[in-house]
């Protein structure tokens, strides 16, 4: 019975978010245009480094000469990472600012279910967005993938679920600090810097590589590129997939516990009342 109510609530949150999203039509257009604007100068820069149409230096590190495909895959995976974090953290802040957070907390739906609901619409939009952007970039600049799309999705899923744990953590920080943009921006920036969103982590200074290797997302980027582009991976792909599954279990458990603790803290301190 509870599960049924939770699913009904998640569906209602997705529907509500979709309606609000499409009442700002510029949002939809901007979400397609923005990633292309980011990728275009990097494409031309990488072209400037090419010899006979190939990024030889880049291939020494990554095992592929197709920097554009490497970049697009990194950008797509990164957009899913952002979708979970923004979907949870920013939407929570947005509800605080709009003034409806208390109305939502007064429904018999736990906060963690509400957060999952909020991130799902963000993920749906990201999927549509990522496919559109990938298609447009393919038309404009061209890139090749070796195949294995299904396996890449199977690898992405535990990483996304694990990110829900991180999302719970971000939401907790937003609740405590009443600040979303800075927290999400910094977390996002650090994650993409350290986990090799747009470059192979082997180019990082030695001192930073252990940090990068300690981030499970690093193995997500690496495994998905290994599957789709046959790049050199840090570890065998099944091992990297195992790390992601482990990350999923630990991430969800730890994130959930933190969120429950922070929720109790906010109800004690009266934080939500003052937003």
């Amino acid at each position: 019975m509870e599960l049924r109510n939770y699913l009904i609530a998640i569906k209602a949150i997705i529907k509500k978010d979709a309606k609000i999203f499409f009442r700002y039509p510029a949002n939809a257009v901007f979400r397609i245009v923005e990633p292309i604007l980011w990728i275009t100068p990097v494409y031309f820069l990488s072209k400037a480094f090419q010899i006979n149409g190939e990024n030889i230096g880049f291939s020494q590190y990554s095992g592929t000469t197709d920097y554009m495909a490497f970049l697009v895959i990194g950008s797509i995976v990164s957009s899913f990472v952002s979708a979970v974090m923004w979907g949870m953290g920013f939407s929570l802040k947005n509800e605080m600012d709009v003034g409806v957070i208390e109305s939502n907390w007064l429904t018999p739906i736990p906060l963690w279910v509400q957060l999952i609901g909020r991130s799902i619409f963000s993920l749906i939009m990201t999927t549509v967005n990522a496919l559109t952007v990938a298609f447009l970039v393919w038309l404009m600049f061209g890139f090749n993938i070796a195949g294995g799309i299904l396996m890449a999705i199977v690898t992405l899923l535990p990483m996304l679920i694990a990110l829900y744990g991180l999302g719970f953590g971000i939401a907790s920080l937003v609740l405590i600090t009443n600040n979303a943009n800075n927290i999400i921006d910094i977390t996002n920036f650090c994650l993409s810097m350290m986990s090799g969103e747009s470059f192979p982590i082997t180019v990082l200074p030695r001192v930073l590589i252990p940090i990068s290797l300690a981030l499970p997302i690093t193995y997500g980027y690496d495994a998905i590129r290994g599957i789709l582009l046959n790049t050199k991976t840090l570890l065998p792909i099944p091992v990297e997939q195992g790390i992601l599954v482990l990350f999923m279990i630990i991430g969800i458990f730890v994130g959930y516990r933190i969120l429950k603790w922070v929720e109790k803290y906010c109800r004690t301190k009266g934080n939500i009342a003052f937003h």
């Binding site: 209602a12 509500k16 939502n104 429904t107 739906i109």
Partner: peptide
């Protein structure tokens, strides 16, 4: 509609 669904009414 939204708050009805949040209370399990659909």
């Amino acid at each position: 509609e939204y708050f009805a669904a949040m209370n399990g009414i659909t």
